[in-house]
């Protein structure tokens, strides 16, 4: 049983604020691991530490046994970690196909001279890249939309295009930051199946931040709960659903209006 990602007492501060506090996580290879917690708990900040957007202020992050804390985002991507963003960040004025082609950047080799001269090797590489991009678009059910500017795609399509772009880097570990945000229950259900397929068919380990509890409980093997930057619980879905500290974090605080009779199960869609 190998751990693909290990976080050791990771700390991230913003001024006086401890956004992530001594976080310990171990993520099993080829598992689906979810991170949940109220807004502002530090989930996205942790993702940003893993992907090199932030350098942790303390602790270490090991990817396949190798320390990646403080490496630059492009280096980390080359090692095999890809991500999507809570608020979609596509290359808006590029087509869907181009977005996926950019995703393949690290696996292509054409340089300045080859591109200008259109060498045979370069043309072959480019044709293969386009074919691969179309295959990925098909995989995320965007067949035929390759020529649309990504900003002109509907919201759900944009979410899936972002995943296709991440897949194009051929990741071993994929970080999804609220992939069902803004989706209705039916779309969220589709997304759930799709995420499971990523793991089952492509053998990619999934690290998921998610608010839709049906999705989280339905596909995660393990779940970690963050609150105020700290991990307050970890376990399988059943353990998390019945953990009093988790229920307290979601329901107990401020939300006096919340109906406490539902205590014992986390509401289907928690805090937003």
């Amino acid at each position: 049983m190998s751990k693909i990602l290990v976080a050791q007492t990771v700390v991230k501060r913003f001024g006086g604020l401890m956004a992530v506090k001594d976080l310990e996580l171990e993520i099993e290879d080829k598992s689906i691991f979810s991170v949940i917690g109220p807004n502002g708990a530090g989930k996205t900040t942790f993702f940003n530490c893993v992907t090199g957007f932030y350098k942790p202020d303390g602790g270490d992050i090991l990817f396949q046994g190798q320390s990646i804390a403080g490496k630059s985002p492009d280096q980390i991507t080359k090692l095999g970690i890809a991500r999507t963003y809570q608020n979609i960040r596509l290359f808006a004025n590029m087509t869907a196909l181009e977005n996926v082609l950019v995703g393949q950047h690290i696996h292509l080799s054409a340089g300045l001279v080859g591109s200008i001269l259109h060498t045979k090797a370069m043309r072959a590489e480019e044709a293969a890249a386009v074919a691969e991009a179309k295959r990925l678009l098909q995989f995320v059910a965007l067949t035929g939309k390759g020529d649309f500017l990504s900003k002109n795609l509907p919201y759900g399509d944009q979410r899936r295009l972002e995943i296709a772009r991440a897949l194009a880097t051929k990741p071993k570990l994929l970080l999804l930051d609220e992939p069902t945000a803004g989706m209705n229950p039916r779309e969220a259900e589709d997304m759930k199946g799709f995420i499971r397929r990523l793991r089952d068919e492509l053998q990619i380990t999934i690290l998921l931040i998610e608010h839709h509890m049906r999705v989280v409980m339905g596909i995660s093997e393990r779940i970690a709960v963050l609150d105020y930057g700290e991990k307050i619980a970890e376990g399988n879905p059943a353990e998390i659903q019945n953990n009093p500290r988790v229920i307290e974090a979601y329901l107990g605080r401020g939300g006096a209006a919340e109906d406490h009779r539902t205590a014992g199960s986390i509401p289907a869609t928690a805090a937003s």
Partner: peptide, 8 residues
């Protein structure tokens, strides 16, 4: 930022 995160 995203460009860098995609490996550029």
């Amino acid at each position: 930022d995203v460009a860098q995160a995609i490996g550029i």
